[in-house]
Structure formats: C-alpha cells, structure tokens
Design a protein around this nucleic acid. Structure first.
Lengths: 65, 65
DNA sequence: CAGTCATGTAAAGCACGCTTTACATGTCGA
DNA sequence: TCGACATGTAAAGCGTGCTTTACATGACTG
C-alpha cells in the first residue's frame, strides 16, 4: 500500500531515528514502512496518524480505490 | 483495540457470513475481529471502512486516546 | 422431529509486522 | 582527516493476522 511517510517526515525535518522514537518503533520499521516493504499494523497506523496530525485515509492509499 | 463491527453489522442486518463475503475474508476472521481477538491489517481496515461507509477512525478506538 | 441458518470454539499452518544486532556508505563540520 | 549523523541492507526470531477444516449449539421452520 502506498504511503506518504517519507515526504511528510521531510516536511517536519525529522530523521528516521527521530520519527521512530516518536512512533515508539525501531528505525528498521520506519525504513521498511517508507520503502513500502510492508504495511503498518492498525495500532501503528493510528500512531502515525497522530504524529503527523492527519487521518489515516490521508496517509495511506489502498490500491483498489 | 475496540471496534464496533458487531453493532454495525447488526444495523445492516448482515450475518457474519454475509459480512465475510463482502470483506473477502473468512467467517473465522469476522468472528475474531468482532470478539476483539486481534486487529485487522490496514488493508482489511480500509475494506471494512468502505463496506460500512465510515472512516477508519469511526470504526476503531485506539486504546491511548 | 428433521433440516437449515447463525453463531461459536479449536487447532494447525503460512505469511507478515516488528525487533534486535550488525555492518556499509555518504555527507558534513571541527 | 576524523568523527558523528543519516540512510541503507541483511538475517534471525517471535507473535499476530488470516486461512482451512471440523465440530457444537441454539433458534426457527416445515
């Protein structure tokens, strides 16, 4: 599933390590998510939503619209 | 994570089998979700959102608000 | 009463989400 | 040039998300 994490993180001026800390995950997880290697769990998706102040629907694009 | 699937399914008058079909999962998955045994994956959360016509945020309550 | 429908439990199996650890590369400032 | 920081890759390990199959129970209906 596509996401805009890398771009949004850039807008905030955060490093991967900084974002990982805010999301309470490891940097590896941030890398994997940004690279689209897999989708976040629902709880993590909610945390991402809160960190960026955007609804989940604005952060992720389900393939079949 | 809490959800309102059982109630919403009831409002639509759907059986678990009917909802499972609409979500393209098995009935076991519907049962597990309604019982809160685990959270749906993000792609499934989007499908649930579409089936009920509600945003993900209205369907699931992350514990830490 | 027999049959069907809705709901539920149980268990095995596979792929994914996330962790931990380690190492490699490029860039930048002292 | 050395060190720190940012980004990236790799691999092993664990729990969870979802499937398949099977069986049990209660309610309703012919």
């Amino acid at each position: 599933m596509r996401n805009h994490l890398k771009q949004l993180r850039g807008e905030q001026g955060w490093s991967q390590a900084e974002l990982a800390k805010r999301l309470d995950v490891t940097r590896q997880t941030v890398i994997a998510l940004e690279k689209g290697k897999y989708d976040p769990s629902l709880p993590l998706a909610f945390r991402i939503s809160r960190v960026f102040g955007l609804p989940i629907e604005k952060l992720f694009d389900p393939e079949n619209p």
